[in-house]
Every structure is written in structure tokens, then in C-alpha cells.
Design a protein around this nucleic acid. Structure first.
Length: 325
DNA sequence: CTCCTGAACGGCTTTACTTCA
DNA sequence: GCTGAAGTAAAGCCGTTCAGG
């Protein structure tokens, strides 16, 4: 396509791409979505336990003293403050925690790449039920990574969860992994890849939109260029001056600060011509159309400033009018 | 056999927190 | 006690690899 602007948008959209509905917008700050309320973040390690007690949220896991600081931080980071109220999250996590039988009776296996990979090893050992396919990987599995296809049911559940929130806190991840007979790392990877797919799709949609905008503007530019050429040609011919209606004053509307073309002798048709000439961009029409219509009712044609100013190259002041720039 | 999809990985960045001078 | 720098850990993103359909 010749856009005339030297833009080359390499689209990878499929030809029959049915203009997919905008994917769920990333939550505000997708990167920082797993933030914890500041008042809890700044609390001393024990305080969140006490807080939970005060909200009748018992936390059944036992944290050994050496891990307490670290675990508190992990826990705090794990809460998705943008998604769940803390109490709800805590409730869910408490239940999750009750479900998960951590080998060490701590929550040390809830997050972190390194931690999680180690944890996966442990989980593989502990969960012999696995997902059917990966229960035989024993020791040699680490040498050659074994890929498994998620079942339709598993994918459906993951999709449903992703619709609700596109990031998971560690507890949700654990619960989901438990529910689906997957390793937490698999759930995490799935969500990561899913976010990437969403982003890619959104990028394609944005790209398509921008391409359409570019086409529209190119066409508009072409049309305006043609118009300019025509007007320049007209300006050169003396008859142009003879047939001109006396241009009149431009006054500023005190309310909307738009320029009004008020002509005592100009007919409505000339005003309409001026309007179509000056206020020709779609954007201006869209933004100012209704208000301009209101002003027209008052026998004044108000035009958006943005529509008037660019017309200076037409040299209206050369036409002998009272318009002063 | 090639191609495509998506699971999995390693590296990097960002952010929050702790420690210490 | 306050403050800022340095260190650490966790989480997410990105680019890539590669198994399996």
C-alpha cells in the first residue's frame, strides 16, 4: 500500500483476522500489579500475622524464624493488591495454604525463579500423581526438558482464570497448580506466555488501527493538497478577485475562543463554502461540529481556530479584506 | 520432511525491602 | 532518629529454544 509517508508497517495479521475484540487491558501497572498495600509492606514481620488474627484470618503455616523476614516479604509481594481486597486474598491464600502440603511446612516455595525451580524438583518428587505425562521424568528429565501439552480442560481453567486477572499471586498460583495437577512453575509460565500473546494481539490491533489512521490522513492530505493547488490557480487569475465576496472580520467568540467569520453581505452559501474549505479535517469536524452548529444558528459561523490558522497560506489578507494576521 | 504453536528457559529490568555507614 | 547508598530478592517481560502436533 502506498501511504506516501514512508511508513512501513509490517503487519503480521492474518488475512481473515476478524478484528478481534480488544483483549483485556492490562491492569494498571501490569508490571507492578503484585504490590502490597504500603501500610502492610512497612509493617514489621510479625505484624501481618497479628493483623490477620485481628481480621479472623488464621494463617496455618508455621514460619521458622530464619525465614520469617524473607517469607514475609515474599508473602507481601505475592498479594495482588490490584485484584483482591487483602482480606479476601488472605482468605483464599489461607485455604490454598491449607491445601498445599509443602514439604518443609513453610511457604518458601511460593515464588521466585530459582526458588521455584528448586521447588519444582521437590514437587515432582512429592506429587507422583503429576499430570500423567510428566510423572516419569525422574532424574533424567532435567537433562532434556520434557514438554507436555496442556489438556483442554486445563487450558480452559487457565483461560478462565486469566480473564479474571492476568497475573497470579503465589497463593493463587499454587492453588491453580494444585487444582490442575500442574507444577506452579507451569502455571506461572502459562500466564507469562499468555500475557505475551495478549500483548502481541493488542499490538496487532493497534497496528491495524494506526494503519487505518494513516490511510485516512494520507487521503485527507492528498485532498487538501489538491484543494490548495486549485486555490492557488484561482488566485492567479484576476477574475478571482472580481468574484470575491468582501471578506469580513474574524472575531473571537469570548466563550469558546473560536474565530467567527461574520460577514454582513456574505450569503449562507458562501459561509458554507468557507466552512467546507476551512474546517475540512475530520478531527475538527468531529470536535467542533456541534458547537459550530450552535453558533451558526446565531448567524455567525464559528470555526475552530485550528481550522482557520492553517489556512494562512491561502493569503486571505492578500484579498483586500479586513482580516489581519 | 517442514511448519507452526506454545511450553519452557535464561537474561534482564524494575521494584521493594534490609542493612549499614 | 534520619538519610542515602549498596546489596538482595522477587516478580515480570523479552527473546529465544525446541518438543510435539
Amino acid at each position: 500500500m502506498d501511504d506516501g509517508l514512508g511508513l512501513s508497517l509490517s503487519l503480521k495479521c492474518s488475512k481473515n483476522h476478524p478484528a478481534p475484540p480488544p483483549p483485556p487491558q492490562m491492569a494498571a501497572g501490569s508490571n507492578g500489579s503484585t504490590r502490597f498495600p504500603l501500610n502492610l509492606l512497612h509493617s514489621p514481620p510479625f505484624s501481618f500475622v497479628q493483623r490477620d488474627v485481628s481480621t479472623h484470618q488464621k494463617l496455618p503455616f508455621i514460619i521458622s524464624p530464619p525465614d520469617l523476614n524473607l517469607e514475609t516479604r515474599r508473602y507481601a509481594r505475592g498479594i495482588d493488591g490490584n485484584r483482591l481486597p487483602s482480606t479476601l486474598a488472605l482468605t483464599m491464600e489461607r485455604d490454598d495454604e491449607a491445601l498445599v502440603s509443602s514439604p518443609n511446612s513453610t511457604v518458601s516455595s511460593v515464588s521466585g525463579k530459582r526458588v521455584e525451580r528448586e521447588e519444582n524438583e521437590a514437587e515432582r518428587e512429592s506429587s507422583s500423581h503429576g499430570s500423567g505425562d510428566d510423572d516419569d521424568d525422574g532424574g533424567e528429565a532435567s537433562a532434556a526438558r520434557k514438554k507436555l501439552r496442556l489438556s483442554k480442560d486445563q487450558a480452559a481453567v487457565l483461560e478462565e482464570t486469566f480473564k479474571e486477572h492476568n497475573t497470579l499471586n503465589p497463593k493463587q498460583k499454587l492453588a491453580l497448580a494444585k487444582q490442575l495437577d500442574l507444577r506452579p512453575r507451569q502455571v506461572e509460565v502459562w500466564f507469562q506466555n499468555r500475557r505475551a500473546r495478549t500483548k502481541l494481539k493488542q499490538t496487532e490491533v493497534d497496528c491495524e488501527y494506526l494503519k487505518r489512521c494513516c490511510d485516512t490522513l494520507t487521503e485527507e492530505n492528498r485532498r487538501l493538497q489538491k484543494e490548495v493547488n486549485e486555490l492557488r490557480a484561482l488566485k492567479l487569475s484576476p477574475q478571482f478577485y472580481m468574484n470575491m465576496n468582501p471578506p469580513t472580520t474574524l472575531t473571537m467568540c469570548p466563550q469558546c475562543e473560536r474565530v467567527a467569520v461574520s460577514s454582513s453581505s456574505s450569503s449562507s452559501s458562501s459561509a458554507a463554502t468557507t466552512s467546507s474549505t476551512l474546517g475540512s479535517t475530520n478531527l475538527s469536524k468531529g470536535l467542533h461540529g456541534s458547537m459550530a452548529a450552535n453558533h451558526q444558528k446565531q448567524n455567525n459561523l464559528f470555526l475552530p481556530r485550528a481550522s482557520v490558522i492553517p489556512q494562512r497560506p491561502l493569503d486571505t489578507h492578500h484579498l483586500g479584506g479586513k482580516i489581519g494576521w
